[in-house]
């Protein structure tokens, strides 16, 4: 597989303006195959617009995008053969039941045999736990049930790519839980590209993340890498009364990139950035303990919460724009 085909979605300098308002600013995005890709951003960041461009619902004003190596503008119908989409507010044909809606959606992709199509629809109902409600009017469905039906409709063709726009944002905690469970069940079959502003959900199910703010892509990559923060791998060391010259000795290690020690009552909390994670894992604590005057009370690799990273990036970008 070449690089283009390793990535299900790829955008190069993708831009979109509505009049004078630039909603997307030269977005370069790469979504690898078989990932659950969380597309994060505050409201109005441009997440939905980007998804709509990918689906051919909105035309870009600059740059380009491909899905499965096909152009999102010129080959949209062929792309949509292999995509499932759940809009922010799932919509259904109101005069059809859940089962009828599923059959209707399946018929966009398949012409037969009808028993197999029916079987596929039953599988989808089973997947989202709606089999017992399949023949009831959709208007009586709860928000969570509608969302799950929306996922079933998006998944009915076993797409190679599922695009979900805020799949859990309008749901209560139980509904969110149900939707996330369905997403996790789907991960082995397909690539999931979903937008959200619920950071806990992203940290739970995503393996890759991109953060968008005001139409600009701030960061993108594996979630572990994002959670390491922008300073790379950092270790936290809490010691009682660090001896003189301790900071300099740490900084002297070839793989230590930076050392900081904000003072707290009775203890020093050291943040040690490293360039060689393997070396730090085996040698850092050993090096510190060689000094008999140092008492280590805690040693751990610093883990950021996604919320910290998100706030830092989004706030940083906003501050940068103001200055």
């Amino acid at each position: 597989m070449n690089q283009t085909h390793d990535h299900v979605i790829r955008t190069d300098g993708l831009s979109k303006s509505f009049g004078d308002v630039q909603v997307l600013k030269s977005v370069n995005l790469a979504v690898p195959a078989h990932s659950i890709f969380g597309f994060l951003g505050p409201n109005g960041a441009g997440k939905t617009t980007l998804m709509k461009i990918l689906l051919g619902l909105v035309r870009p004003t600059g740059g380009s995008g491909t899905i499965f190596g096909r152009d999102v503008v010129r080959e949209s119908v062929a792309i949509r053969e292999r995509i499932g989409y759940l809009p922010q507010q799932p919509r259904f044909v109101e005069y059809m039941t859940a089962r009828e809606n599923l059959t209707f959606a399946a018929n966009f992709f398949f012409s037969g045999p009808q028993p197999k199509i029916r079987e596929r629809c039953e599988e989808m109902l089973e997947l989202v736990g709606l089999r017992d409600k399949a023949d009831r009017p959709i208007k009586n469905f709860s928000g969570g049930e509608k969302q799950r039906l929306g996922i079933a409709l998006a998944q009915v063709n076993y797409p190679d790519l599922l695009i979900l726009d805020e799949p859990a944002s309008a749901l209560d905690p139980l509904g969110r839980q149900e939707v996330l469970e369905v997403m996790e069940r789907l991960r082995k079959h397909t690539t999931v590209f979903y937008s959200t502003h619920i950071l806990d959900d992203v940290q739970r199910v995503s393996d890759r993340v991109a953060i968008l703010n005001r139409g600009r892509l701030l960061t993108s990559g594996p979630i572990e890498q994002i959670l390491n923060g922008r300073d790379g791998v950092v270790y936290t060391l809490i010691v009682k009364e660090a001896p003189q010259g301790f900071s300099e000795r740490l900084a002297g290690l070839s793989w230590v990139t930076h050392v900081s020690a904000p003072e707290t009552a009775g203890a020093s909390v050291w943040q040690i950035g490293v360039s060689d994670e393997a070396a730090a894992e085996t040698a850092l604590l050993r090096f510190v303990l060689e000094d008999q005057n140092v008492t280590v009370t805690e040693f751990s690799r610093k883990k950021y919460e996604l919320e910290e990273i998100f706030m830092e990036l989004v706030k940083g970008e906003s501050d940068g724009r103001q200055s």
């Binding site: 709509k52 689906l55 051919g56 619902l57 119908v77 062929a78 949509r80 053969e81 995509i83 989409y85 809009p87 799932p90 919509r91 959606a105 966009f108 992709f109």
Partner: peptide
């Protein structure tokens, strides 16, 4: 929007 996201 939903219908046009299908292959139509």
């Amino acid at each position: 929007e939903w219908l046009l996201a299908k292959p139509v």
